[in-house]
Write a protein that binds this DNA or RNA. Structure first.
Lengths: 221, 221
DNA sequence: TGGATCATTTTTGAATTCAAAAATAGAGAT
DNA sequence: ATCTCTATTTTTGAATTCAAAAATGATCCA
């Protein structure tokens, strides 16, 4: 198994929430499961720590990173900036073909919305945002975006998606597609910011708090 | 020596250009120099590879990453976006004290300009940009910014700094400080973008090309 | 003499081993 | 019984070792 694959596998395990935020990372188990020794596992953990998904505590192992409200706010803020930038660049560079693909993804997403299929809706939603970022034609940007969105998604917040919020999100997506088709960079950038701001408000308002599941609260001396 | 320190030491060695872009990373030598074994060294190299400073070639070792013109353009583009975002956020959050510090750094930088001390000028320039990014109060943003600027700086491009360019840069910095003092987020963001765009044009126009120093060009079969 | 093939050396990647640090368990004292 | 201190176990971090892959170089043939 290649180094990058090990990193990817563990990243997925973390993103799937299989190891909840704040929980210890069981080295031994992961070694057995991935059928590797501790050396490559630990290399991967250090990489994931640099990415912000894992927290290393000297001499007492590693844990799945736990995000505070502040962390979440910061991540959204950066995500917003990256998407806005991607939107502007995409409008300069996107091909008709790519626009058509995103339009198709949009239509599919709207269909999922009509059917009330939240999971599929989210999937489609993500595909559109990633499509825009990729259309920016900037791998550095795409990489940072992937890293930031991964950390956001990491926190399996369960935002109660109200019909109002959902409808708003869909209408915003209509505007996004529209700006993209018009190749209106400034407009797209503006809409994307608003879209992300709304999402962030949802998440934080919903009382995002990464509850400590495996660590007792410290008693004060 | 702590893991993070090892990463930092090697990062510095790369940023100092001690190992030129494209050159093989001498594992053995680095081990001796840092007085560590291969295990922690290799952990650090994988982290630096994830950061984009090192290129890992399966079964044939690691090299100092070499940037193409496209890479450089992409990095500048993202750097621009991050600084613009930082500028906007900084205007919302910066304290009078922080403004005063940046103003002082600006004055010092202008003095270095007058004295024609390019090295000190660059140092001051960097301090100002970092000051703005830090004033944004977003560690995630600061981290990404550090990573991107490191990669840019990594490429020891030698831009011939003409008097005209230098004067323009200084006048842009006047405008930057001004916008910051007025806490004009949109204005600051706009100026920062222009400033970075000019810098990028300089670098790329100057024919940035990471000349291959240690690898013969492949002969076409 | 030039080039191809095979043996040797070197280097890489990963498992194992080892020492130090931390966690745990147990004994003794209060 | 509970707390504390110590001995034991476990876990962590890093050096070493080992196998596989690649690079090197030597030999043989045209």
């Amino acid at each position: 198994m290649l180094h990058e694959e090990v990193v990817g596998r563990i990243r997925d395990i973390l993103l799937d929430g299989e190891i909840p935020p704040g929980a210890r990372i069981p080295e031994r188990e992961l070694c057995e499961r991935l059928e590797i020794s501790r050396t490559p596992l630990r290399e991967a953990l250090k990489v994931l720590a640099a990415e912000g998904l894992v927290q290393l505590l000297p001499h007492r192992g590693s844990r799945a990173a736990k995000l505070t409200d502040k962390d979440m706010r910061d991540l959204f803020e950066v995500c917003q900036g990256l998407e806005a930038l991607a939107g502007e660049l995409a409008c300069e560079r996107i091909t008709d073909r790519e626009i058509a693909d995103i339009a198709a993804a949009h239509a599919a997403m709207v269909q999922h919305y009509r059917e009330g299929d939240l999971i599929q809706y989210y999937r489609g939603n993500r595909a559109i945002h990633e499509g825009i970022v990729n259309a920016a034609g900037n791998p550095v940007l795409a990489g940072l975006y992937a890293s930031v969105t991964a950390r956001i998604r990491r926190a399996r917040y369960v935002t109660p998606m109200t019909p109002q919020r959902w409808a708003l999100a869909v209408s915003e997506h209509e505007a996004i597609l529209n700006a993209l088709q018009r190749r209106d960079g400034a407009g797209l950038s503006h809409i994307l910011r608003a879209h992300l701001r709304h999402k962030r408000e949802e998440v934080l308002q919903a009382g995002f708090a990464e509850t400590e599941s495996s660590e007792p609260t410290l008693k004060i001396a």
